[in-house]
Design a protein around this nucleic acid. Structure first.
Length: 468
RNA sequence: GCCCGUGUGGUGUAGCGGUUAUCAUGAGGGGUUGUCGAUCCCUUGACCCGGGUUCGAUUCCCGGCACGGGCGCCA
């Protein structure tokens, strides 16, 4: 992971993180620092102020004599979450009293203030307390996300989200994938099936894209070999669950000269790399989340790097597994949430579900004629990746033969003519190819133990919420 | 969209056909303190909206709105 360097800015010479990390070298150095005022203790001749910036926390010590009376009073009466700029000297903090026999903790650092500049004063009361021990409802948190984000475990969640995307990118680049951006305003349904959000594109009716699928494929037809995209997808579905949003970030790949097994292998290598990198670099963020979880009487989470290959449970075997447990399901039925619970009881971690019936998969999924399931019906080269009961990914080998593609479209009740912008791309030489789309928010849920996808999305969009 | 449940200070909660409506956290004031989940004292602030039943509704009933859980569908 790259080393981060914070250069001085117009407002500060050092970050609070730098003061804690390099306090020993900075002793007796004058620094200018900024932050949100988290807590102020002391009403007499002294005041201890904890401030927080995006890199860490620091205690500021105000004392009579070092600052004038007005400054001391200002520090003592400042409302929580006000933003301040402080000038002072770095000093070693007096160690806290430790019980007999306890080891002395390593030195920490503070700033002895000589000047305080209140940048903006926070209104009171706060819509939710940043450091309060009371729990806050999700709706209140989302309505006031700017304040919720100041809470350390929430901040840790989005730091991890950034890292997960970074490690995912990193891995795919090492396997030769190039990052692309496909249009989100489209003229027609890209897959059929789900409901799209209609919109007006000047005078032309258009839609928000539900998936980059067809565009990824066009880049493969264009010879780009291996591509990935991390971008939004929009679905106008009336679902209302812990794992659905109407706008979500889809992490997609597509690769030429590959089949479904090949891209499953890419995916498990990528997830393994992400988990391994988080375990190596980001335990501090996991610790912050765990500290909060413990305060809420929840089990702490551990980053268990999943070993590869992940288990593969073919559709036919999954149906058998579900039937054996006593549930009522027949070949050709969808595997529903309650069925996923049955599989998850046996395979609690990541597992692939390959070889679904062709009838249940979209038109662009490839099938090998004669590759039939238990009841003699055509299987596809489509697969899912689940973590526990939750679907993370849908993917597969794509159909590269234009005649078969058009036949598939007709079989799904779609008119090939509506897809000519896409099917025409297959008429001039087409490589076999495969890919998948992964829900980033769901992957974060798997990593962090979040039980609601809204925890892993900054400003979620669901049926009831378009704001903030 | 369907089924079930819940709406009480800023936040999170307890509770009840007639209460001084509980507790925590916060906010305001003060005391003490090189503090560090600071602490102690005082003060402050709430029953989602509309209709009905009732002598009386925050409590019961109906409707609305909002939220939570489950399901369908999906990533």
């Amino acid at each position: 992971m790259a080393v981060v360097e914070y250069h001085p800015t117009a407002y500060r010479t050092h970050t609070l993180g730098q003061i804690q990390e390099s306090g020993a070298e900075l002793l007796a150095t004058e620094v200018k620092i900024c932050g949100f005022m988290e807590a102020a203790r002391g009403k007499g001749k002294i005041c201890f102020m904890d401030i927080r910036d995006g890199t860490g926390r620091c205690q500021i010590f105000f004392k009579e004599g070092a600052v004038d009376e007005h400054t001391l009073a200002q520090a003592q009466n400042l409302s929580r979450e006000s933003t301040v700029q402080v000038i002072g000297m770095v000093a070693e903090k007096r160690p806290p009293k430790v019980a007999e026999g306890e080891p002395t903790p390593p030195p920490t650092y503070e700033v002895v203030a000589s000047a305080l500049n209140v940048i903006t004063e926070a209104m009171t009361p706060l819509p939710l307390g940043v450091t309060d021990t009371v729990s806050v409802g999700l709706d209140t948190r989302l309505d006031n996300r700017y304040m919720d984000l100041r809470r350390s475990h929430v901040s840790a969640m989005f730091t991890l989200r950034s890292r997960v995307l970074q490690y995912g990118r990193e891995h795919l680049i090492t396997e030769g994938f190039k990052e692309i951006n496909s249009p989100k305003i489209i003229a027609s349904a890209s897959e059929g099936g789900t409901n799209l959000f209609p919109m007006m594109y000047f005078d032309t009716p258009a839609f928000l894209s539900q998936s980059p699928q067809l565009y990824k494929q066009l880049t493969i037809l264009g010879g780009m070999e291996r591509v990935f995209e991390i971008g939004p997808a929009f679905r106008a579905e009336n679902h209302d669950t812990y794992r659905h949003l109407n706008e979500f970030i889809s992490f997609d790949i597509e690769g030429a000269w590959m089949d479904d097994d090949d891209v499953m292998a890419v995916q498990e290598r990528m997830i393994n790399h992400i988990w391994q990198s988080v375990a190596d670099n980001d335990q501090d963020q996991i610790d912050i989340i765990n500290q909060y979880r413990i305060s809420q009487d929840e089990q702490p989470i551990t980053v268990d790097v999943p070993s590869i290959p992940f288990p593969r449970i073919e559709y036919c075997d999954a149906i058998k597994m579900i039937q054996d447990s006593g549930a009522n399901i027949s070949w050709g039925d969808d595997i529903e949430s309650s069925h996923c619970d049955i599989i998850a009881a046996i395979h609690p971690g990541f597992h692939f579900l390959p070889r679904w019936p062709m009838a249940m998969k979209p038109f662009y999924i490839h099938h090998i004629t004669g590759e039939d399931g238990a009841t003699g019906e055509q299987l596809s080269r489509g697969f899912d990746l689940n973590y526990g009961r939750d679907e993370m990914t849908s993917g597969g080998q794509r159909e590269h033969n234009v005649e078969v593609l058009e036949e598939n479209l007709r079989n799904k009740g779609l008119d090939p003519a509506d897809f000519s912008f896409y099917t025409d791309g297959f008429r001039y030489g087409a490589p076999p190819h495969a890919g998948w789309g992964l829900g980033v928010a769901r992957l974060l849920m798997a990593l962090t133990g979040a039980r609601n996808v809204r925890e892993t999305v900054l400003f979620p969009r669901d049926r009831q919420r378009v704001t903030p």
